[in-house]
Design a protein around this nucleic acid. Structure first.
Length: 395
DNA sequence: CACCCGTGGAG
DNA sequence: TCTCCAAGGGT
């Protein structure tokens, strides 16, 4: 027999209606039971029983076998928080949210500002807006219960292909094909898929669909993700420890790190802007305003700022200030966004009267609860650090 | 499909 | 220092 993965037999036998690229990249036909997939899922689930990560939103494999299901609310919340975000970053936010809002109805009843404030720092703030919208739909239109099928879940705000499948599988035992970044990596390696992302997604989905067991589909999905997170890592995967290495084509060919292949990404442009941190002389409060609900950092608070639409050579300067004051340059903040790099000049001034602009005062004590994204928190800190009057006042 | 949308940690 | 990128979704 040739060097062929035991997990690709089905693929060879398949008709290959999806055929594009190398013949052995042909996925099995969806909905067709796959003996090879069964072999993989069995090995993987056995590994998961012994090595599952212990995470706050999870039910252990042992408890799961006793019929204990995780709370759909907690599964949903964790899945949304984990979108493009590391487990390490999510943990404390998950703890905060579940303690403050133990049920979806509690969350639905929360003020927008409270939720945005609690989400501040986690990034991708559209998630927080959609989270709240989803909580309200579930509470008001579904009697406080999450729909139990991927199809129905998919219709809710902030729940796409991945999240709907993940919730359906993990919380409701639906054998939905869960495909996230981890599973894309694991799958492209198992089958040595040469097609670069995102074009390979269709084939990946078909493979995953064939692998997904009808028994323990949720544990299977989480096992794949754990495998990707701890063994089948982007760099230097620990194939020696991998429970499915025997069936991995990339491993056989000695080049697991070459997958998944990806298209080259575009360079990030540079932008510059300015933030104006006005501080109240009497108590050091900072003047804030709300950003528009759409677009970058949508719905979050900020000190009045210019837009960053284009690079202005030589900086922006105090001419861009939202109101007259004794503005002086406190420094600057460099911040990398997903698709551009920003340098934000930070100007500061001390004032007595309220500015004649939309906004509110945030006292030093209330600043922690403000919906300030990390960028704006940095800007306030820069202004703070160069305000000599602060220490004078506080003594 | 291509683009927009944050942040922090790892190497 | 710098690049990569993590349990993606919306438009």
């Amino acid at each position: 027999m040739t060097k062929k993965s035991i997990f690709t037999r089905q693929a060879q036998a398949a008709d290959g209606t999806l055929a594009r690229g190398a013949p052995d990249e042909r996925p099995p036909r969806p909905s067709q039971a796959s003996p090879a997939g069964a072999a993989l899922s069995t090995a993987l689930l056995d590994w998961y029983d012994r090595h599952a990560r212990d995470l706050p939103w999870r039910t252990s494999p042992a408890d799961r076998k006793r019929g204990i299901r995780p709370d759909p609310y907690r599964v949903w919340l964790s899945e949304v928080m984990l979108q493009q975000t590391t487990v390490a970053a999510v943990k404390s936010y998950f703890q905060t949210f579940t303690k403050r809002w133990p049920t979806v109805a509690d969350l639905a009843g929360a003020p927008d500002e409270a939720v945005m404030g609690a989400w501040a720092g986690l990034g991708y703030y559209a998630r927080a807006r959609n989270l709240l919208a989803c909580a309200r739909v579930v509470t008001l239109q579904h009697n406080g219960r999450f729909p139990e099928t991927a199809e129905e879940l998919r219709a809710l705000p902030g729940i796409g292909d991945y999240t709907s499948a993940a919730i359906a599988a993990i919380a409701f035992d639906e054998p939905a094909a869960v495909v996230d970044g981890n599973i894309e990596r694991v799958t492209t390696r198992l089958h040595a898929i040469e097609t670069p992302l995102p074009a390979a997604r269709k084939a990946i989905r078909a493979f995953v669909d064939a692998m997904t067991p009808s028994l323990r589909p949720g544990d299977f999905a989480q096992a794949m993700m754990d495998l990707g997170a701890t063994i089948c890592t982007p760099r230097r995967p620990a194939c020696v420890l991998c429970p499915v290495s025997a069936g991995c084509r990339a491993r056989m060919e000695g080049r697991p790190e070459e997958f998944p292949r990806k298209l080259a990404k575009k360079a990030k442009p540079a932008r510059i802007g300015a933030a104006f941190v006005a501080r109240r002389a009497s108590d050091g409060a900072v003047w804030l305003r709300r950003r528009p609900s759409t677009g970058i950092l949508g719905g979050m608070s900020e000190p009045p700022s210019t837009d960053w639409s284009s690079r202005m050579d030589g900086g922006t300067g105090r001419d861009a200030a939202p109101f007259a004051a004794g503005w002086r340059l406190a420094g600057s903040v460099a911040h990398g966004f997903t698709h551009f790099d920003l340098v934000l000049e930070v100007w500061t001034a001390e004032i007595d009267a309220d500015p004649a602009t939309e906004g509110w005062w945030a006292t030093p004590a209330s600043l922690v609860d403000e919906a300030l994204p990390t960028l704006m928190r940095k800007a306030v800190a820069v202004a703070e650090s160069t305000a000599p009057a602060t220490k004078e006042r506080s003594r």
